[in-house]
């Protein structure tokens, strides 16, 4: 069958769900879901072996639309449920979809420890710089100076660098992509899914409704323009003088290791005892 593009996507969507999905016009989350589906398709993973574990928020709503095993959990805790599923059945491809508030604020501790213990989960952090679903309050990723419902006079705090956090915590694979650079995003996502251990992929995905409008982006398109002009390959970004970096941010791969996941180490431990039992 020679099908391409969105025809592939349509095969993976749940036919008994109502479309279009609930997300706003221009929301990048749909693009992430598309990339995820294409990545899974490209890797040839059976639908039954893929588990999507989502947190709460706009990103959490993605799970319901796609025909995998899907679990919509509690706010910030997606990684904990995913950890349980992965440990209980290491054969599954467990993909966690979280928002920036989800993964970095309420779930920050889980994020750190999932990376530290290198559990075999793909963590997609959909960073839209804001709490979207609940009405546009500040998240830990809201840039300093920008306006939100809970920072009406501008955000005073520094925002989190998700990539640095994941690197520091010991993740196997750390990368950043954007929903404008979809081909690149897909490549990163394929890696993030197929590698062992804890793989974190941050996706910059604009929220026009709750973030853009309050911060001088007139329409969704302007936010994509901003992505287009500010995202920069990591190597180029690092070569740039610091005073010239301005709003620019690096995308690409930051850490790439092949340490075995926790579930593999645990399996080895069990194999030792099993050998003892049989021998």
């Amino acid at each position: 069958m020679n099908i391409t593009g969105n025809e592939i996507i349509h095969q993976y969507l749940r036919h008994n769900k109502k479309f279009p999905h609930v997300l706003c016009a221009g929301c990048g989350h749909g693009i992430v879901l598309g990339s995820l589906i294409r990545s899974v398709h490209q890797l040839g993973l059976p639908k039954d072996d893929v588990v999507i574990v989502a947190g709460i928020g706009c990103s959490g709503r993605l799970a319901v639309y796609v025909d995998f095993n899907t679990v919509h959990t509690t706010h910030g805790r997606a990684l904990t449920f995913a950890t349980g599923i992965k440990m209980a059945n290491p054969k599954l491809n467990v993909i966690c979809i979280m928002g920036d508030g989800d993964a970095l604020s309420i779930g920050g501790n889980h994020m750190i420890h999932a990376a530290r213990r290198n559990i075999g989960i793909t963590a997609l952090i959909l960073n839209n710089n804001i709490y979207g679903m609940t009405g546009g309050q500040s998240s830990p990723a809201t840039p300093q100076g920008s306006v939100s419902m809970t920072a009406p006079f501008g955000q005073l705090e520094e925002s989190f660098d998700t990539v640095q956090l994941a690197c520091g915590a010991g993740a196997n694979f750390v990368a950043r992509g954007t929903v404008f650079h979809v081909h690149k995003l897909e490549k990163l996502m394929v890696k993030a899914i197929e590698r062992p251990g804890f793989n974190m992929l941050e996706v910059i995905t604009p929220c026009h409704t709750q973030y853009g409008r309050k911060n001088k982006y007139k329409n969704p398109v302007e936010m994509y323009r901003w992505l287009k002009s500010n995202a920069m390959e990591r190597e180029r970004f690092e070569a740039l003088d610091e005073d010239k970096r301005g709003d620019k941010f690096p995308i690409g791969v930051f850490v790439e290791r092949d340490e075995p996941g926790l579930e593999e180490r645990y399996h080895e431990l069990k194999a030792r005892f099993a050998a003892g039992r049989n021998g």
Partner: peptide, 20 residues
């Protein structure tokens, strides 16, 4: 080029080859 298809957040565009 596939841009519209890949970037449609709502999977509402499909581009195919006419011939096939």
């Amino acid at each position: 080029c596939g841009f519209c298809e890949l970037h449609c957040p709502d999977f509402a565009i499909v581009v195919t080859e006419k011939k096939s």
